[in-house]
Design a protein around this nucleic acid. Structure first.
Lengths: 184, 184
DNA sequence: GTCTATAAAGAGATAGAC
DNA sequence: GTCTATCTCTTTATAGAC
């Protein structure tokens, strides 16, 4: 004998979630259908509803990403870590993150999720910085990383796609340093 | 007597376009219906189709924005002009631009429009800069402005909404200067 | 020229058979 | 437990009346 019912169900759920992430990441919330998700996962559309209650609920579970790494640091080290994060984002976002980003401007649950996710990042960076405007600086840094990621991964701007990670690092580093270090 | 038929038609078209811009800007392409546009413009839904052929064509015309101001400059002045542009964006985007931005991650025509619009901006900044990587720098500057605009206007990140234009200027300026001036 | 009425298609969701 | 069949709703788009 092979798998318990619970185990089979768990596997089906995972396949559905994985298919949902890929399709939501590619097409966004509105243009992704339950039928397409079911087709890709190799299950019946009704089963998707049975497991996840609604399309919106499926989406909400699909965009739950693993939380960002923890730990504070002084500005110089912080910049290096941000560049590392950015490099990772530019070489390929996890489907869950891409799905959230893709729909964050048109679906209110995705907007809320993006706001919360960026909020956490801002808090983390903000508390590592000195000064009264630390949260504003942190928000600007986060927005900058967001913009570069969108330009590279979603809009696919030619100059960004043609550049190597090292080139981007070299040009962005002084930019982030200027924002994080200056105490003027 | 008052208005010629052509004049009446022109005015109806303008009202429809204006309503379309507002609704597309607010809800994005997929969640905006012809019916809602017609309702806001005070005309019959069938008339909208009669004038614009399809929803996508209405959208394409609605997001046509006035082109950006021309003229090159040296880096220092360029930064000031970019800050001015950014300040304008943060105090309120024109509906046409907002409509384009809102849907640029989920509608392929909007993606193409955004890519073209940013491409023009990148060319303009790029030709004003010296050096081999001028286009990459220009693309990064444009992406940064995009990210801050999205964070402020669409995601409504608290730290950005609470900051004054002057604070943002002061923090972003060295960041842009570092990106545009460094010739290392 | 403008609107009424409707066609045609596709979606999410559900009830019940197996 | 899973899937077949269908319901119901909403949409874009169109044909034809006024």
């Amino acid at each position: 004998m092979n798998l318990s019912r619970a185990e089979r169900r768990r596997r089906s759920e995972q396949r559905i979630l994985e298919a949902a992430r890929l399709l939501f990441a590619e097409r966004g919330f509105d243009r992704t259908t339950i039928r397409a998700v079911a087709g890709m996962a190799g299950v019946d559309p009704a089963l998707v509803m049975q497991y996840f209650e609604s399309k919106q609920e499926l989406f909400n579970q699909a965009i739950q990403a693993s939380p960002a790494p923890e730990g504070a640091a002084e500005p110089g080290e912080l910049v290096e870590r941000m560049l590392e994060t950015l490099g990772a984002k530019l070489s390929g976002l996890p489907p869950a993150s891409l799905a959230m980003m893709r729909s964050m401007l048109t679906n209110s649950d995705a907007t809320a999720s993006a706001r919360a996710s960026l909020g956490r990042q801002i808090d983390q960076i903000g508390t590592a910085l000195p000064g009264a405007d630390s949260r504003l600086r942190a928000a600007l840094v986060s927005s900058i990383m967001l913009g570069v990621t969108i330009g590279h991964q979603l809009l696919e701007l030619d100059p960004l796609r043609e550049a190597s990670r090292e080139e981007i690092d070299r040009l962005i580093r002084p930019c982030l340093l200027a924002l994080l270090q200056d105490t003027a």
